[in-house]
Computed example of a mutant assay.
Amino acid sequence: MLLWSDAHWRVVRVDDAGFPAFYRVISQHHVAEFSQLLAPERQRCMGLVCAVERTLIEQLHPTKVNLAALGNVVPHLHWHVIARFDWDSHFPQPIWGARQRDVPAGAAARLRIGLAELDAFVAGALALA
């Protein structure tokens, strides 16, 4: 779900029932590696990643926020920003790792606020970033 974009970047919330507070900061231009960006572009990218991370921390109080820029399957620069909780199905393992437990009633129901409200906070932070 697209939350915010400009000429160079877009931010989406990933539709993942197990990890509902999962966002991606994606380059609008094809670049495979972070180091291929010019210094101002790298700063802008990290400013956006930090805005999403800070919002997740302030609104959800997660146990940890995971940041990753893998691109092994799709070699197009994008950052994963994922709120993690000690109750989530995989914690402390990566979300791509082995399941550790079931989450009764689903992960979104365990969040401090609803996804629509969270998305609005994230979009607002990005508008100011």
Rank of each mutant, 00 (worst) to 15 (best):
V74D: 08
L67D: 14
S89I: 04
G71C: 08
W79D: 05
V65P: 04
N72S: 08
W79C: 01
P94A: 15
G97Y: 06
A69G: 07
K64V: 07
W87H: 06
W96T: 10
L70S: 12
H90D: 03
A98I: 12
D86E: 05
W96V: 13
A98Y: 07
Q93H: 15
R84A: 13
F91Y: 15
I95P: 00
V81I: 12
I95V: 15
V65G: 05
D88A: 08
L77G: 10
H76I: 04
Q93M: 13
G71T: 12
H78D: 07
G97A: 09
P92C: 09
V74M: 10
A98E: 15
P94M: 05
L67I: 15
F85D: 07
F85H: 09
Q93A: 14
H80M: 03
P75C: 04
W96H: 03
P92R: 03
Q93D: 13
L70V: 12
A98F: 07
I82C: 01
F85W: 08
A83E: 05
D88S: 09
N72H: 10
I82P: 00
A68M: 09
W96C: 11
R84E: 02
L67N: 09
F91A: 05
G97Q: 04
F91W: 15
F91P: 00
H90V: 07
G71R: 10
L70Y: 11
P94E: 02
L67W: 11
D88P: 01
P75S: 01
H76P: 05
P92K: 03
A68G: 14
H78R: 14
L70I: 12
G71P: 14
I82T: 08
V73D: 01
L77I: 10
H80T: 05
P94K: 04
G71F: 14
Q93S: 14
V81E: 10
W79Q: 00
W79T: 00
I95A: 15
L67Q: 14
L77T: 11
L70C: 13
N66L: 13
P75D: 12
A83P: 02
V65F: 06
I82N: 03
N72D: 15
P92I: 02
A83S: 08
R99C: 15
I82K: 01
R84W: 11
V81C: 00
W87V: 04
A98D: 14
W79Y: 14
K64I: 02
H78S: 01
V74K: 01
R99Y: 02
A68N: 13
H76Y: 08
K64M: 14
W87P: 00
L70P: 09
P92Q: 13
Q93K: 12
L77Y: 05
H78P: 01
W87A: 02
S89V: 04
P75K: 06
H78W: 11
N66E: 11
I95S: 10
P92S: 10
V74G: 00
D88Q: 08
W79F: 11
A98R: 07
K64D: 04
D88I: 04
P75T: 07
A83V: 00
G97I: 09
